[in-house]
Amino acid sequence: MLGSCVTLFMAIMAVICSIGSASDPDPLQDFCVAVDDSKAAVFVNGNICKDPEIVTPNDFFVSGLNQVGNISSPFGTEVTRIFINRLPGLNTLGISLARIDYAPYGLNPPHVHPRASEILVVMEGTLYVGFTTSNPQNSTMRNKLFAKILHPGDVYVFPRGLIHFQYNIGKGNAVAFASLNSQNPGVITLANALFGSEPPLSSDVLAKAFQLDTKIVKYLQSVPWIPN
Rank of each mutant, 00 (worst) to 15 (best):
M10L: 14
A14F: 15
S21F: 15
A22N: 11
D24K: 10
P27V: 01
Q29A: 14
V44Y: 02
I48V: 13
K50G: 06
D51T: 12
P52V: 00
D59L: 03
F60T: 02
F61A: 04
V62T: 08
V62E: 01
V68S: 09
S72N: 14
S72V: 01
E78K: 02
L87I: 02
P88N: 09
P88A: 01
L97W: 11
I100S: 10
A103I: 08
A103Q: 11
A103V: 08
Y105Q: 15
G106Q: 10
L107V: 15
N108I: 00
P109E: 08
P110M: 04
H111W: 10
R115G: 10
I119C: 13
L120R: 08
N135Q: 13
P136Q: 09
S139Y: 02
M141A: 07
M141H: 11
L145M: 11
H151M: 02
P152G: 03
F158Y: 10
G161H: 01
Q166I: 02
Y167M: 05
I169T: 11
N173Y: 04
N173C: 04
V175F: 04
S179Q: 05
S179R: 03
L180N: 06
N181V: 03
P185I: 07
V187R: 12
L190D: 04
A191Q: 10
A193L: 07
L194W: 05
F195D: 06
G196R: 12
G196M: 09
V205N: 06
L206K: 09
A207K: 02
K208D: 08
Q211T: 13
Y219A: 13
L220G: 10
V223Y: 07
N228P: 07
